[in-house]
Nucleic acid binder design. Sequence first.
DNA 1: GCCGTGCGTGTATTCGATTACACGACCCGG
DNA 2: CCGGGTCGTGTAATCGAATACACGCACGGC
Lengths: 331, 331
Amino acid sequence: MATMKDVARRAGVSTATVSRVLNGHSAPTPETRARVLAAVEALEYRPNVLARSLRVHSTQTLGLVISDLLNPFFAEIARAVEDEARKHGYVVIFGNADENVEQQERYVRTLLDRRVDGLLVCPATDDDGWVSEVSARNVPLVLLDRRIDVGGAPVVNADGAAALRELAAHLVKLGHRRIGVISGPEDTSTGRERLHAFNDALRSLGHPVAPDLVTHGDFRRRSGADAASWLLGRPEPPTVLVAMDNLMGLGALEELRRLGRRIPDEVGLAIYDDQPWFPLFEPAITVVAQPTEEMGGAAVRSLLALINGEQPAEVHLDARLIVRASCGERL
Amino acid sequence: MATMKDVARRAGVSTATVSRVLNGHSAPTPETRARVLAAVEALEYRPNVLARSLRVHSTQTLGLVISDLLNPFFAEIARAVEDEARKHGYVVIFGNADENVEQQERYVRTLLDRRVDGLLVCPATDDDGWVSEVSARNVPLVLLDRRIDVGGAPVVNADGAAALRELAAHLVKLGHRRIGVISGPEDTSTGRERLHAFNDALRSLGHPVAPDLVTHGDFRRRSGADAASWLLGRPEPPTVLVAMDNLMGLGALEELRRLGRRIPDEVGLAIYDDQPWFPLFEPAITVVAQPTEEMGGAAVRSLLALINGEQPAEVHLDARLIVRASCGERL
DNA sequence: GCCGTGCGTGTATTCGATTACACGACCCGG
DNA sequence: CCGGGTCGTGTAATCGAATACACGCACGGC
């Protein structure tokens, strides 16, 4: 691989001049410029990013730690993040935390060691041990999807309260009174907030959720199936299941199929997070959809603002209800 | 951030000694070692990976270029790759080519510029312009899923021939004679190979595919829907649709739903690639499943072997047929 | 008492860029 | 004709580690 020195030699100038030409600095003569560019061409010179980064303390790299790449919600986020980052000339390094705090912490450290210019994290849980390390190295940090109580880091997420209110009204209107909730973990903000928003909505409609019909999963498929199984085994089983995440929803659906329950006649189902295949189920699934693409894009933009020393921008988008057929029409 | 020099000063030794302790080199005295480690601890020293990489010409980083992160097949691959890489102490940088040759080429270049130690590519098409650049910088390369004719680079993929033979037999046994095929692009190895294997199988069963029932999509959802629409509009429409990729399969299913065709009574459907939700459709979808996890893992292992100067290992795993209900039971 | 040997450590170079500073050429005003 | 400004370019330090080589010291054999 040709280095800058080689280019300089061939163009008959110093490396400083080569650097200036390549970075559009100050003003080398048009002739010098041409000679340098010719040499670059001839030698197929490509700058060594490592050397440059070492010198200028910036890697044009963003770190993204997500909970689970196999969760289509996070895959969409990852995709959007990568897309927006690329538009701004940044590259993204991903880390998969697997909904696991230790692995998340390891990855944060790895990414910091790689000298990312900024960090995007979808926290696995409320645990914030890793944050101190990030701020100690003062690397800009943006929290994505899930919030944790930590000073300074802006949060980009989708607010589901309004959509959940609509969902509650929808279910009540259809005559559902025993509503089973498959909530996320209590130690995640999304787990808590969705449940509370939904509870509040039902209460204000005069139909508070029965406490024995609320279960907590872990945002994974298996836990959704288990929760559904448990809920349907109650003495007075629910007439509809609300899963607060797409994987748990999938698990619940799986269990309903396994038990042979007809949807929505025997049990209704609503899921938080939309997926391209949800409309294709029989019946099509009623969902609360999050604007994943916008979330990813906004998160990157907030992070870049932070990196450029600008005001950190908090962004709260709105989730929205998409009524399909899976909750029935029992007016 | 503390540097090695700081550690050296605090421990009263030279940076060379610090380096030796940290890398387990030769043999510093136990006492020196202890002093150095204490200093490292006290200063919370973390080595600068950039500097190290610059010096030793190795970044412990792998590049992965995939066609589409939103395609669950590739998401699974990405996940598996990241997992295996981490086990070996490597970090993965992803690039999303979006089934787009130029973007793929740009990403390959970006990853090379980042000095990845090895490159894993799922080629978007047969185009191999980018390969020369990789070999020019002699960076180890492993092709994943799709093959292109290029010397040297080992391929890791799944062979679907046997499974497609089984599928052909299954369909014929169920009485299907007009079989519509939604194939992948002709300029991808997977597109060609799956179609040819399936054709061969049917021919040898005495029921060759009617040429007017073969269409080519682009491995995306939309093209699957269009293809299904076209096939079902033929004068003598097929009694079953075979989609050679999960996204096109989803598109075909979407179109069948839109047209209100009952599956499998009016039209059957089989899809190449399994997905967790395919068994949950009504009826459950018959599929050819690829061992994605093994593919990702094997690809990483082959790449690491190459990096270590060992023999490049080609790996061909087997896809397998999973019969469910979507092709009917019309014996 | 001398010399080789081996071991632990330090000195100084290197990886490949960026950039502060200095220098020489040239032009212009007084 | 000389002092000062501008402009283009080169010199050399720097980023933070790894490592070739050299050095000093202790030890053992003759």
